[in-house]
Write a protein that binds this DNA or RNA. Structure first.
Length: 427
RNA sequence: GUGGGUGUAGCUCAAUCGGUAGAGCACCGCACUGUGACUGCGGGGGCUGCGGGUUCAAGUCCCGUCAUCCACCCCA
């Protein structure tokens, strides 16, 4: 036998069981998005490289993007994120649109990096953005959407938390410590490491980027001050709104949250599993300059993105993925023998016309085998049309869970099966 | 890009000091010629990732290579 061609590294095959999980997540995302009045949209999966050159993090564009030349010599990129596309789309129709826009999307993205736990090269992402609103209440709306979503997939406050900070606030505080503007990038990275490195290593890293002892001490103090948000009018209004949205059990201030991407300008947030088994579940925040950066007039915006990989791992670990029916159809019509092929197919067809979802067995195998297959597939009811039934104008059907079998006149079969399915669903 | 772990049946794994490659699950058959899930009995399945080396002898030791996982970097 020839060797099976390997899939591309870092991609995932979605067999029906995995696809059911992805579709379920998509359904929850859609429900929450629509509950808050957001509209679905999408952009192309291919973009010009220059779109990302404008504003994304250098690492993301230079090292982690799939870039290639198409047959016409154009340098194109498999989109590594959606936000620049969104900014481009908004900029293109800016003059004719009614702001604020509330938009959401779910689709595939690609990043060329080494696969590991929670990270793959091809993944799916939910993006949701509020464009054209610059209020802290807008920030809070996105955090509330995020919290509602986490709840809707079964995550409790003790399992997952949304951590919030504000970049202007941090910038003011860092400047007060005498940290120069050009040091900010390095300091942000240092802040991001706060929980990853031990104290000695963390301080060593601080010295490398040019912080003196007093500044390090001040920074440490800053990063343990969970009351720091009270110095920010923006965050005060944010948390008032969070209370109003009824999600304050899932959203809290954390001075160590700063975010890596360059384009965030205001409030930023991330969701984490409280057990700390995984990397962040999602991240987002305010980006007021991005539409401007791709050629439009300045428009304030806030949004976040949720990848499916970490989220799925976490939900599986916590047992929150529901038992999803990968059942193709609840009704399975057997084929008694080769001679009854036409009769069986016709029966199945009649049942479908009556509104039932029906799988037909296509080869005249032993009934034993057919029942076994029906059971494995997860069918609820198996239908038999054999010589006895045919002679009496009847159809037999058996409910697999209960094991009870009955026969009814053929004309009433669909109705009887439908009733049985409904009562089975009720239990 | 850097560092580490692991590759044995379809899946999960075992194999003592280097000495003829095994179990559970799954699959197939029979008990049961009109009935699944449960039970009993039986059966098929392996280039031990690949290539080389050491040895009387390699799944086991050594080198290389590929794949995969984990960590770093970065990030959904």
């Amino acid at each position: 036998m020839a060797e099976i061609v390997r899939p591309v590294k870092g991609t995932q095959d979605y067999y029906p069981e995995e696809m059911a999980v992805r579709s379920w997540l998509y359904g929850r995302m859609r429900a929450v998005s629509e509950a808050f009045g957001y509209q679905e949209y999408d952009g192309p999966f291919l973009e010009r490289l220059e779109l990302y050159a404008a504003k994304s993090g250098e690492e993301l564009v230079e090292k982690q993007s799939y870039v290639f030349e198409d047959r016409g010599g154009e340098r194109v990129t498999l989109r590594p994120e959606l936000t620049p596309t969104l900014a481009r789309m908004v900029a293109a129709r800016q003059k004719q649109m009614a702001f604020p826009l509330r938009w959401w999307s779910f689709g595939p993205f690609w990043r060329y990096e080494r696969p590991q736990k929670g990270r793959s090269r091809e993944f799916f992402q939910w993006n949701i953005d509020l464009i054209g609103d610059d209020s802290p209440e807008g920030d809070a709306e996105l955090a509330a959407i995020a919290a509602s979503f986490l709840r809707s997939v079964g995550l409790r406050p003790d399992e997952s938390q949304i951590l919030v900070n504000n970049r202007p606030l941090m910038q003011r505080e860092l400047e007060a410590l005498g940290i120069a503007a050009k040091q900010l990038g390095g300091v942000y990275r240092l802040i991001d490491r706060r929980d990853k490195l031990d104290v000695a290593k963390w301080e060593a890293m601080g010295k490398v980027i040019g912080l003196d002892k007093g500044q390090l001490a001040g920074l440490s103090q800053l990063l343990s001050d969970i009351e720091l948000w009270k110095k920010s009018d923006s965050l005060k209004r944010f948390f008032d709104a969070i209370d109003a949205y009824g999600v304050n059990d899932m959203v809290r201030y954390a001075p160590t949250i700063i975010r890596g991407l360059d384009y965030y300008t205001g409030t930023v947030f991330e969701a984490w599993d409280t057990a700390g088994d995984f990397r962040s579940i999602f991240g987002g925040g305010r980006y007021d300059d991005l539409v401007n950066a791709v050629g439009g007039d300045p428009v304030p915006a806030v949004g976040f993105a949720v990848g499916n990989v970490v989220l799925t791992l976490l939900l599986e670990k916590l047992g929150h993925v529901p038992a999803l029916g990968s059942t193709p159809a609840p009704v399975y019509v057997t084929l008694f023998d080769a001679d009854s092929l036409t009769a069986s197919l016709t029966l199945a067809s009649e049942l479908r016309v009556a509104g039932l979802n029906v799988t037909s067995h296509l080869s005249p195998d032993k009934l034993q085998k057919q029942f076994k297959q029906a059971d494995r597939l997860g069918a609820k009811i198996v239908v038999i049309l054999g010589p006895e039934e045919a002679a009496q104008g009847q159809v037999s059907f058996k409910e697999l869970a209960g094991g009870e079998q009955q026969s009814v006149a053929r004309g009433q079969a669909a109705a009887a099966i439908g009733r049985l399915l409904e009562s089975a669903q009720g239990t």
